[in-house]
Amino acid sequence: MSQATGARFEFHNLTKVFGGLVAVNDVTVEAVAGGITGIIGSNGAGKSTVFNLISGFYKPDAGQVLLEGQDLTGRQPHEIAAAGVGRTFQNIRLFQGMSVLDNVRTALHRSLDYNVFHALLRLPKIRSEEKRAEEAALEALELVGMLEAKELTGSSLPYGLQRRLEIARALAMKPKILLLDEPAAGLNPGEVADLVNLIRSINAKLGLTILVIEHHMDLVASLCQKVFAMNFGQVIAGGTLAEVQNDPAVLEAYLGKGASHA
């Protein structure tokens, strides 16, 4: 299941304009291959919009998205996901009403080797393929430590587990890179610590290239090898967290607003 080296991922000069608002302005980021890259910035800085541009939910007005040198710019979301971009959402988006196991199993559809006609006739092949899907789903659940919860309904879970389930669902696709949009939002300090361990272990076990948007600086500090700070749609600094935190532009942006997200 593990990869020797993490996928190279970068995007150049991404720009998105909503009406008159330049939500993302000429943003260039090169992720740490096989490592964890952080994106920080105040509310409305354009972080989630960057993820939506990468994953195809918004069409960029300019710029280029490259996964292992393959140009993903302007493709449909499902094509981008199929190319190896897994993601979670800032507001958790589970398949409500489905069991935990089925939430993950659904994400395995591309690896199941049967077509509509096989399905309609329920040929014997389906049984073995579905068995394989269940095993793969259980494997993904084990990875996030949620095996015991497999029968429960996704939406009945506490917040922290819902976030884990969303990660497991993305991992089931066997993505090359994983985008996490504020995975620690709404979690208590204990849950945040668990999440840090989880992300670290996923990164270590799978050698997965991870991009994470986060306000929790302790999470960023303990996970990210490289950090990009955004403000008003632009990247104002990039480097190690220490470098970024001492960058004049960042100090100016944070102090200027009189608010920090510690």
Binding site: G56, G86, L94, T106, H109
Partner: peptide, 19 residues
Amino acid sequence: RNALAIKTDELAAKAIAVN
């Protein structure tokens, strides 16, 4: 399962590569 995913949350379905 794909159909149910679409019915529940089209965006999330797209994010797991459902056409």
